Simulated assay, not measured.
Amino acid sequence: MEELIDYGKNMLGIKDVQTWDLSFISEKLREAKFSYSENEVKQYFTEPAVLKGMFGLVEKMFSIKIKEKKAPVWNDDVKFFVIEDKEGKEIAGFYMDLYARNGKRGGAWMNDQISRREVDGKIQKPIAYLVCNFAAPVGDNPSLLTLRDVETIFHEFGHGLHHMLTRQTELAVSGISGVEWDAVEMPSQFMENFVLNWDVMQTITHHVKTGKTMPRELFDKLVAAKNYGAGMANVRQIEFALFDMLLHMDTHPEKDAVQKILTAVRKEVAVTFPPEYNRFANSFSHIFAGGYAAGYYSYKWAEVLSADAFSLFQEKGIFNPEVGNKWLDEVLSRGGSRPAMDSFVAFRGRKPLVDALLRQYGLLETK
């Protein structure tokens, strides 16, 4: 915060820095600190390279094979893939609909078409949809993805793996079904952690013109930029989560209780304070219209879980099949058949710690 105020005053001529100035100052400081363009980064993230590297990663981790296969599709750009186990038996399938087009819903998501279960003594194979809105290929050139696009496809594929690699036969606990709200994002955020890993980056980048992988210098800039402002971003999420939880614990609210609770939380954890007239809570749709009432904390909690789980891969080796199969056996395959905390402890050997997340954001010194 001090750095932002200092930069605003001395470099941008904003003598009295106000809350509404901070986003502008922050972006200018980001540009000054990290001299790379999004367009430069996109040249390395060709869609075929990203998919090949991502598929190769999970194939090594979980001893599976992913193969493209012919199937009826709703658009020519849609592709269908099957997952085979180490014996070559098909255990799941998924559609990938990656490009934006007229009439298509925006955003990115994983949805299930069929869930794994036992029907009349036979196992029904799970099928998933993985949908994004990336820029489509132009002519003979492949689709070029932003870093955020790459994180998005890894994220949605994490949800897809949770759905497809389940071993449950009861519909209510198969795949993501029955998994607690505060842990359902763990497998997806877990996969995001692999993107900004140097070893993985070498497998998912292929410059559109030169064919070279991303250079270390550019990679280091991406890591540094990701951690830019991480402390402020984290306390902002803590502010939202505490406000939401305290608000829903108040069974007999007083007049103006909403604003009083928010003000009290800000005094405890915030470093930025909006003007008196600001009514952020009135537009906090996540908790009033988005299903997160008393559960907004799950955003940050899932990050704690996924970062701590990923730290075991960092300790044992990113492509370590022993650790990968343990993640499969104790987390992905379990679905909602037991409490998510039990699955985490079975994988990690202990309850989650916050240290890994703090190290990931550069807020704690790496051992």
Rank of each mutant, 00 (worst) to 15 (best):
Y7C: 13
K9V: 12
K9Q: 13
W20D: 12
L22M: 12
S23C: 04
E27L: 08
A32I: 03
K33W: 06
K33D: 05
S35D: 11
S35E: 10
K52W: 00
M54C: 05
M54Y: 02
F55N: 07
M61P: 01
S63W: 01
K65Y: 03
K65H: 12
P72D: 09
V78L: 07
K79D: 05
K79F: 04
K79N: 11
V82M: 03
K86A: 15
E87Q: 12
E87R: 11
E90P: 11
R101G: 03
G106H: 11
G107T: 04
W109L: 01
W109E: 00
D112A: 08
R117D: 10
F134G: 03
A135P: 00
T146Y: 01
L147T: 00
R148A: 04
F154Y: 14
F157M: 12
T166E: 01
A172V: 09
V173K: 14
V184C: 00
E192L: 01
E192W: 00
F194A: 01
V195T: 05
L196R: 08
W198G: 07
V200T: 05
V208Y: 09
K209N: 14
K212N: 14
M214W: 04
F219L: 05
D220S: 08
A224K: 11
A224Y: 02
Y228C: 03
Y228T: 07
Y228A: 04
A241W: 11
A241Q: 07
D244V: 13
D244C: 11
D244E: 09
H248I: 09
P253A: 14
E254M: 13
V265W: 06
K267N: 11
E268M: 13
F273N: 02
P275M: 03
S283W: 06
F284W: 10
A294P: 07
Y296W: 15
W301N: 02
A302T: 14
D308G: 11
L312T: 14
K316G: 07
G317D: 08
N320F: 04
E322K: 12
E322T: 13
K326W: 00
W327H: 06
L332H: 02
A340N: 04
A346V: 05
G349W: 01
V354F: 13
L357D: 00
R359T: 11
L363F: 09
